[in-house]
Amino acid sequence: MKSLKKKRRVQIIAVAAVALIVSTALIGYAMRDGINFFRSPSQIMAEPPGPTEVFRIGGLVEEGSLVRGEGETVRFSVTDGGAVVPVTYTGVLPDLFAENQGMVGTGTYKDGVFVATEILAKHDEDYMPKEVIDSLKEQGVYEAPDGS
Results as ranks from 00 to 15, higher is better:
residue 3 S to C: 09
residue 7 K to E: 13
residue 9 R to T: 11
residue 9 R to V: 06
residue 9 R to Y: 05
residue 10 V to N: 13
residue 11 Q to C: 09
residue 12 I to N: 00
residue 14 A to T: 08
residue 16 A to Y: 02
residue 16 A to R: 06
residue 19 A to S: 13
residue 19 A to H: 00
residue 20 L to Y: 00
residue 22 V to G: 05
residue 24 T to E: 08
residue 24 T to G: 13
residue 27 I to F: 06
residue 27 I to C: 05
residue 34 G to C: 03
residue 35 I to K: 07
residue 36 N to I: 06
residue 36 N to S: 07
residue 38 F to Y: 14
residue 41 P to V: 11
residue 44 I to M: 13
residue 45 M to N: 09
residue 49 P to D: 14
residue 53 E to Q: 15
residue 53 E to I: 11
residue 56 R to L: 15
residue 58 G to D: 01
residue 58 G to A: 10
residue 58 G to M: 09
residue 60 L to E: 00
residue 61 V to L: 09
residue 62 E to M: 14
residue 66 L to A: 07
residue 66 L to E: 08
residue 70 E to G: 04
residue 76 F to G: 05
residue 81 G to H: 10
residue 82 G to W: 08
residue 84 V to A: 12
residue 91 G to E: 07
residue 93 L to R: 06
residue 93 L to M: 11
residue 94 P to N: 07
residue 98 A to G: 14
residue 98 A to V: 01
residue 103 M to G: 00
residue 107 G to Y: 02
residue 109 Y to D: 05
residue 113 V to A: 03
residue 118 E to N: 11
residue 120 L to R: 15
residue 121 A to E: 07
residue 123 H to F: 15
residue 124 D to G: 11
residue 126 D to K: 10
residue 126 D to E: 08
residue 127 Y to K: 00
residue 127 Y to D: 04
residue 129 P to D: 14
residue 135 S to Q: 02
residue 138 E to R: 13
residue 141 V to Y: 08
residue 144 A to Q: 08
residue 148 S to V: 10
